[in-house]
Simulated scan of single mutants.
Amino acid sequence: MTALRDVAVVGAGAAGLHAAESLRRAGYDGRLTLIGAEDEPPYDRPPLSKHLLGGEWQPDRLALRGPQALEELRLDLRLGVPAERLDRRERTVRLADGHRVRCDAVIVATGVRPRRLPGADGPVPGAHVLRTLGDALALREELRAGTRLLVVGGGLLGAEAAATAVGLGAEVTWLASAAVPQAAVLGTETAALLAGLHREHGVRIHRGTAAALLRRHGRAAGVRLTDGSELAADTVLMAIGSEPATEWLADSGVPLDDGVVCDAYCAAGPGVWAAGDAASWPDPSTGRHHRLEQRTNATEQAVHAARNLLAGPDGVRQAYQPVPYLWTDQYGLRVQAFGRPGDADRFEVVDGSLADHRFAAVCGRDGLVTGAVGIASARALRHLRAQVAAHSAWPSEAS
């Protein structure tokens, strides 16, 4: 630890902030630079598609830490200046404003950027993505009673935005390529329950795949589908996934393959670590590299990366072996999931019932418990989490 004089954390979201906090709590007393591409101090992203988009919250409620807490971290805080290049030989990070930040070690926490449809390159009025505070505020300005919103993408982000928008009185069409939106994440049974709720609230679910954004008079006017048909809209939200924001590492020698390729300890090479949405590390059960774009993972992985960085190559390091956890809020229901229920081919309710919108279910594949999902059944879910973590044999004790 004493050999480190300068540490840079690149990315000022949840992962970056928790990495910085973990370094200080573990005793690192050197220079600590936190670099963020956005102008805002670290804020929480999950409320963007719900509380902020719906107008229940204002931006100040999203702040992860207040000014005093940030000051106590003694950060060299560089906001609104994206990183452009990592020079490992010179041990510097070059910023977009031309400055260079010295770093004996760096933690990459730059997250992801949203994908866009063909035809949506550059600013297009009426065409939106939803990743940043500015994105959410811009979309919120357009959502009102009677607005025809087309949500493209059948994942959690699209689902939450659709639920929020229809609550504001917008006419919402939700375009998804899967037969049951959200099934790849939550499993078919839970996703079907939520799809039914969307329909009950007036969301029109259309199955298909968008090929390109339609534009009329310079403004988004809907999308063209791969089958040649068109869906018209006043406003289009592209929630079609994301890609790691790692282009600034292209010439650095840091291994990249759908993210920063790390070992089990979150290390990507001498002096380089990664955490959060941009980190790719080996799954302890399969050995295959993977990323997790989940809020809880951003926090937990950042803590591991910081501690392992300070332990050094000869210290006691801990492999990162999380139990994936996510939640989503739709129509007043909080759905929680552990593991990977979307990959399961077996599903069994062990508490409550889907019909009552209060249940906990165990999910399995290849004779093992691989996930758990539920609504308003916290105690049963906690028990199932332990089985997911242990890769218990199916059937589980709870079933």
Rank of each mutant, 00 (worst) to 15 (best):
A245W: 01
R204M: 09
G202L: 08
E230I: 12
L237N: 15
G228C: 10
A232Y: 07
A245K: 07
T190D: 07
T209W: 04
R216G: 10
D234F: 00
D227F: 01
L213H: 09
I240L: 07
G222I: 01
V223A: 04
A245P: 02
G218W: 13
A220T: 02
G228I: 00
R199H: 12
A239M: 02
A220V: 00
G228A: 10
A233P: 08
T246S: 06
L214K: 03
A212C: 14
A192E: 00
G196C: 09
G222D: 04
A239N: 11
G241T: 03
L237T: 12
H198Y: 05
A245C: 02
L194N: 03
G241F: 08
A233Q: 03
H201I: 04
E189I: 09
T190G: 12
G196W: 13
D227H: 07
E247W: 05
T246H: 01
L237Q: 06
L214N: 08
A210C: 13
G218V: 06
R216Y: 07
L193K: 09
A221S: 14
A211L: 11
M238C: 10
D227T: 05
E200R: 12
T190N: 06
L193W: 06
G208H: 08
G222S: 12
A232D: 15
T235G: 05
A221G: 15
H201K: 12
D234N: 08
T188G: 09
A195D: 00
T226P: 14
L193C: 08
A232E: 11
G196A: 02
H206F: 11
L231N: 07
R204S: 15
E243V: 09
I240G: 00
S229R: 14
P244Y: 04
V236D: 03
A210Y: 04
E247N: 00
A233V: 01
P244V: 07
A195L: 14
E189G: 10
P244F: 10
A245R: 01
A212R: 10
T190M: 13
D227V: 01
V203M: 04
T235A: 09
L225C: 14
T188Y: 15
V223R: 01
